[in-house]
């Protein structure tokens, strides 16, 4: 029962403490990693066929990545119509310069980096909001660290509507790191590359964004019509 279970190379998890977390890791992270290797190789095939003028291959690239591109563009621009514009510019650029996509980066990382640059150029006049540097301890306290009720964040996060609502209250800088690393499942190094940060700086921003998300989930009143099951 107490035997540690090995999930990833070099890391053991105590089965007693993190049981439910562990099963999500097994389902999510681990599979995601293996899948993404196969998919990344297939993406590179599709992109070289696109470079040779194969429209079917290009359309597969679009259908595989349009959601990710649109989601990131919408967060950066804050507007669905602008996000569609960014999406079109991104895929046009990809179509025209498919031959320049290097084999080192994943196609998804390459596309998302184009999308983010394009979206930022659109936003350049308005300037970017930068989250205030609050002490980590305060972010933790807001998130329920040491409060005795941190289960409220896990319960709230289990409902998609709550999660979307809490996400939308965060600034664009926070939302984009959560989208790239958690929702799109990019590796830390890839997500950092898209945002133009070193991996360590990216991880720091990610941790703060997650704590702010937890704070938003904890502070949000339960949605109408959603029955939250208590311990009774």
């Amino acid at each position: 029962m107490g035997r540690p279970i090995r999930i990833m190379a070099g890391v053991t998890w105590p089965s007693l403490v993190w049981l439910d977390l562990l099963s999500s890791h097994l389902r999510g992270f681990h599979m995601l990693d293996r899948q993404s290797q196969d998919l990344a190789a297939f993406d590179h095939q599709l992109i070289s066929r696109t470079a040779n003028g194969d429209r079917r291959a290009f359309e597969q690239i679009v259908s595989r990545h349009a959601t990710a591109v649109f989601r990131l563009a919408k967060v950066v621009t804050g507007d669905a119509a602008a996000a569609e514009d960014v999406m079109q510019k991104t895929f046009l650029a990809a179509y025209r310069s498919a031959s320049t996509c290097g084999s080192d980066a994943s196609v998804r990382t390459w596309l998302l980096a184009i999308a983010r640059n394009t979206a930022q150029q659109l936003q350049a006049k308005q300037g970017r909001e930068v989250p205030a540097e609050e002490p980590l301890l305060n972010l933790g306290l807001d998130a329920g660290w040491g409060s005795g009720d941190p289960e409220t964040i896990a319960i709230a996060a289990a409902h998609k509507d709550n999660l979307d609502k809490a996400l939308s209250t965060l600034c664009a800088e926070d939302q984009e790191v959560l989208i790239l690393r958690d929702m799109e499942g990019l590796r830390g190094s890839e997500a950092a590359e898209v945002v133009g940060l070193g991996e360590q700086a990216f991880n720091t921003r990610l941790h703060r964004a997650r704590l702010r998300l937890a704070g938003a989930l904890r502070g949000a009143p339960p949605l109408d019509g959603v029955v939250q099951e208590g311990g009774a």
Partner: peptide
């Protein structure tokens, strides 16, 4: 906190 991250994923 970990299960919130799992939900997000």
């Amino acid at each position: 906190f970990g299960s919130m991250v799992a939900s997000l994923r």
